[in-house]
Computed example of a mutant assay.
Amino acid sequence: MDKFLLRQQVLERLAEDLLQAEQAVQAAHETATHEENVAENKYDTLGLEAAYLATGQARRAEAIRQAMALWRQFRPLPYDASKGIQLGALVCLVDSQDRQQQLFLGPDGGSMKLGSGDQLVQVISTEAPLGKAVLGKCEGDEVSIRLAPGRQQFEVLRVH
């Protein structure tokens, strides 16, 4: 799998998310400022609610812009076994039922699933619990994370 292609897919998905967020901001702003939504009494809060929604959507759009800036600057490096798994690693984990999953460790704001050929790749940050757990690990190492019902164990199968 090509890490730079995955990076480009993340940027494309973030651009789509940003467009949707900006459209939501516009729609909420239009609702908040529409003349029919002027409050007639203290219980008439549609305009106020739309204004709060517009503010929240604007914050979401700004968070996406910041994530895009991080991903544009991000240059995944080749795996260095002496350092273990680091930001930019493409990791294949296997669980106790022999199910494999592909992870791509990237900057914040890019948590998503991407298709690469016939495989799904989960993009996570190093701040995610599983991202933190794999940092510094090498092929063959065990990884354990705490989930609500207990712990989940993985083995690092491959790293690129």
Rank of each mutant, 00 (worst) to 15 (best):
A63D: 15
T33L: 08
Q101L: 14
G115L: 14
L130F: 09
K42F: 10
L93D: 07
E127D: 15
A39Y: 06
D98G: 06
A133F: 07
L120V: 13
Q73V: 08
D118I: 10
C92D: 11
L157N: 04
P76F: 09
L77K: 12
L53V: 11
K42L: 12
V91T: 01
D80R: 10
L70W: 08
E40W: 11
I145A: 02
Q122V: 11
T55S: 13
R13K: 12
L18P: 02
G56T: 02
K137P: 03
Q119I: 07
Q26D: 15
Q86W: 02
S125E: 00
E142T: 15
D2C: 04
P76Y: 01
A24G: 02
L48W: 12
E12A: 12
L147M: 09
H160A: 12
G110V: 05
Q153I: 13
G117P: 10
R59Y: 15
Q102E: 05
A81M: 09
G84E: 07
Q66S: 11
Q57K: 14
V94C: 00
L90M: 06
L105Q: 01
T45C: 06
V91R: 00
G150I: 06
G136F: 03
L77R: 13
Q23A: 09
I145D: 07
T55I: 11
K83I: 03
V91S: 05
V156S: 07
P76H: 02
L90P: 05
T45P: 05
P149R: 00
E127N: 15
A81W: 09
G106A: 03
Q8K: 13
F74C: 04
K3H: 04
A128I: 08
T45F: 01
M112C: 11
T126I: 13
D141Y: 03
L46G: 09
V91M: 04
Y52S: 15
R65T: 08
N41I: 00
A148E: 12
V134N: 04
N37P: 05
M1R: 02
D95N: 11
M68N: 03
E62C: 09
G140Y: 08
G109W: 01
R72Y: 05
K3V: 08
V156M: 06
Q26H: 15
K132Y: 09
A133P: 05
K83P: 04
V10E: 03
I124H: 07
V123F: 00
E40K: 14
D118P: 08
L93Q: 10
L46V: 13
A32S: 11
L87F: 06
K113P: 08
G56W: 04
C138L: 09
Y43M: 05
L19K: 14
I124L: 11
E62D: 14
E30L: 11
A63M: 14
D108H: 11
S96N: 09
E12D: 13
Q122T: 11
E127H: 15
E155V: 14
M68V: 05
G117T: 01
I124K: 01
E40P: 06
V159S: 04
G150Q: 07
E22R: 04
H29V: 09
P149S: 04
V10K: 01
D118S: 12
E139A: 13
L48P: 04
K83V: 09
H29Y: 12
P149I: 00
L87K: 10
V121T: 01
L114R: 07
R7H: 06
Q8P: 02
K42T: 07
Q26P: 10
I85H: 02
V121D: 03
A61C: 09
D98W: 06
V38F: 10
F154Q: 02
G117F: 06
F74Y: 10
R13N: 12
